[in-house]
Design a binder for these strands. Structure first.
Ligand code: MN
Ligand code: MN
Ligand code: ZN
Ligand code: ZN
Lengths: 139, 139
DNA sequence: AATGAAAATGCAAATCGTTTGCAACAAGTG
DNA sequence: CACTTGTTGCAAACGATTTGCATTTTCATT
């Protein structure tokens, strides 16, 4: 139920200290349904504890990414954006007009990618699929 | 036959001046089979004309991208990399051990993407698919 | 609860890739 | 060849991210 519970134990297991800034950032990530960038996370964090620094947000994101607790995305143009890594894998469709990020998942697509890599003699470690599009006009 | 011939006329049509730096960069892009970044293009250009500046490389890449003459990629980590846009569309598989970029194309994959976007009510403007993997061990 | 070693923090400065202002310079037109 | 205007090189500015360092915290240990 409690989203960031898992995270905290994960951190513990990884042998990293559960500090105040980390708890706050973890909580923010757990509650975020969007894909905030470091600055957005920082802004939300400051509301909870004004002493947090942007550098710590960056350091924490890197740490969490390394632990596999968050995913980093680099959508066209902008700064890196993050999301908690507890859901199942999905890819993204970015609405070019609104900037909205829509998540989707296709098992067929995933398998096809693997098949392609396989034919090239490769094993996929990870991948990145981003569709950039606009809402189809009218009905 | 002559790869950069098309480019030069394209530039002409677009009403931009065919300057010395541009010709050189165009030639470099036409001959490149890899996906060089701005600095790599700059290094190659300097060998031809030592007076070329990195700023001009960046400006030219942006210009060419705007004209649809080159494609810009932002593979994981590194700086933007470019390639001439005269071939047919393809996606990339990046070898995590060597950094080598392998091109591939799957009509099925492309159609599947479109279908997914369609189901979400979107028209794809463009997309980005990158597979990151390692060569399958042994035979 | 007090101690101490090690890790993490905030701050400011540094770095990286890329962009930009501006004066000097070339491209293309006539 | 001359003129107009786009383009260049240079250096400084930028935005995002990282880093050095002195100061705080955490947390395992008394
Ligand atoms: Mn997502
Ligand atoms: Mn390519
Ligand atoms: Zn996927
Ligand atoms: Zn494709």
């Amino acid at each position: 139920m409690d989203q960031h519970r898992d995270y905290e134990s994960e951190l513990r297991e990884a042998g990293v200290r559960l500090t105040k800034p980390r708890k706050i950032i973890l909580k923010i990530l757990g509650e975020s349904q969007d894909h905030p960038d470091a600055m957005a996370i920082f802004r939300r964090a400051v509301k909870i504890d004004a002493s947090i620094s942007l550098a710590t947000v960056y350091r924490t994101m890197k740490l969490l990414e390394g632990l596999g607790a968050v995913h980093r995305h680099s959508f066209e143009g902008g700064p890196a954006r993050f999301e908690h890594a507890d859901g199942e894998h999905h890819d993204h469709l970015i609405d070019l007009d609104t900037g909205r990020v829509i998540e989707f998942h296709s098992e067929t697509l995933e398998r096809l990618q693997e098949q392609i890599a396989d034919e090239l003699g490769y094993d996929i470690e990870h991948h990145r699929l981003e569709l950039y599009g606009r809402k189809r006009r009218q009905r």
